[in-house]
Design a protein around this nucleic acid. Structure first.
Lengths: 259, 259
DNA sequence: TCATCTACATTGACTAGACAATGTAGATGT
DNA sequence: ACATCTACATTGTCTAGTCAATGTAGATGA
């Protein structure tokens, strides 16, 4: 078999680089269709499998999606603004919607939530953040939030069971006040929170809950809230698909000017 | 060819799920070796290519790495703590190291930086953040930061050229004071900053500069600083590989208690 | 007209190989 | 003892196909 090795790069990488370049430069625009695997194979003088390897790279990079039997398309991406700081800003005393819904409605879009409450044993990482022993029971209030009917992010709140038993938090109903306010009404008002953000690929469960396409990294945002006395009262895991969010916050300089 | 279809899931996904499970559960620990492709193929009754597809998923998920000719190994991951808030905290008047180096040394590790200064035309996204027209000249101070000899993150600062020409910022030397202080000395003290974080897969250039393995998502953190008068004076792009960082910040509740 | 069926193009999954590239361990030579 | 070479196991790249799954457009039928 005679193979013309036109460059040092393997063929599948040259194919990926070629179409990546066209997308990055704007020559191929969102929703544009790529040639079929067969056409690309002919063009580059390789078999279909090699083309699939190359396009697979762009799929895992999140640049294109495959829609059988239509072909590959350049992916469209728009980012929802995620503002972790807003969570600790004051709100009206009797809100009609939680913060997330407020923001989405303000943007002229339609929010929707699927809520599920369960009792689970705390995994080690969660237990550590809540200051309890691994395996102790916590209340998990698991939510998938939708915008315009599309799943957009995961918001799984966890509470030590002693704090919230027999409270509204145990009910899988929508709480317009927000769970922070319910906690405050129970005497556990949060005063301070630590935010941790990890960047990683999603787990299969997250892929399923969020209907994620391949090649979509996520931000896992742990928000752990403490009372003024320093007691941890909730730990929330927000999972934000990278193709649908940008995280925004603001800083103001502190202390005396150094200049 | 007789194929036993033991489940609805494709073979390559069953293979990925099997080893993902062993890693997640701790049965396979960091630096442990997986069986060879050939062994796995025999075990699952498929050909090597199918095994490669399955293990390829775990590689892109960042769970394993291939080391030829040794085999596949469970990836070890430790996260450097990245605190965007620290940037706006006061520091001693005459520091010997910048914040990054200070933190690394405090952790008992060895920092190192490769700095490169150039004049570039502002790309549209950068121009918008700096409040200038796309294509205008900006000073780019591009750095790759190393810990214990390993590239750890990218820190590319950009300044409108009018603000910094003929200043120390134009020199590709290490500035212990930090560029923020140099800007302040030039009369552009920052008072407020907006942080934007995007989650995505790295570009080939970022993969090269950071020696990233496949399957490593990154956080792209844009830090745009403003003077008290509201003038943007710098925009820095930090690229943080997901396998090496966690982003941490803290919040304190503001306004009158709502409970 | 409207619904239903069918052929088709395209991606998805997989087989059965071949040869290349690469670090290491063991053999060899001085 | 030390350096050098070589065989080898393993992953990397690629060929040349087969059959399955899927959504649509066009053909068919009432």
């Amino acid at each position: 078999m005679e193979t013309v090795r036109s460059s040092a790069m393997p063929a599948y990488q040259r194919i990926a680089a070629a179409y990546r370049g066209m997308i990055m430069s704007g020559e191929l625009r969102p929703d544009d269709r790529l040639p079929t695997e067969h056409e690309i194979a002919d063009r580059f003088g390789v078999v279909r499998q090699t083309v699939r390897t190359g396009l697979g790279i762009l799929v895992t990079e999140g640049l294109i999606v495959a829609r059988r039997p239509h072909g590959y398309f350049v992916r469209r991406r728009e980012h929802m603004v995620y503002r972790p700081q807003e969570k600790s800003r004051p709100r009206p005393a009797t809100p009609e919607m939680d913060r997330f819904s407020q923001q989405i409605v303000a943007e002229g879009r339609t929010p929707h939530q699927a809520i599920e409450v369960s009792l689970v044993q705390a995994a080690p990482d969660l237990a550590q953040r809540l200051g309890i022993a691994a395996g102790e029971t916590v209340v998990a209030r698991r939510r998938v939030r939708f915008i315009n009917g599309e799943p957009t992010n995961i918001n799984d709140s966890h509470f030590p069971i002693d704090l919230v038993k027999d409270s509204e938090i145990m009910s899988p109903a929508y709480l317009p006040r927000g769970t922070d306010q319910v906690l405050a009404d129970l005497g556990y008002r949060q005063d301070r929170a630590i935010d941790e953000i990890f960047i990683r690929m999603p787990t299969p469960e997250e892929i399923h809950r969020l209907s994620l396409g391949p090649g979509t990294p996520v931000a896992a945002h742990y928000d752990t809230g403490y009372t003024a006395a320093g007691q941890p009262v909730q730990c929330t895991l927000n999972v934000l698909p990278g193709d649908r969010h940008k995280i925004v916050f603001e800083r103001h300089w502190q202390g005396e000017p150094a200049g």
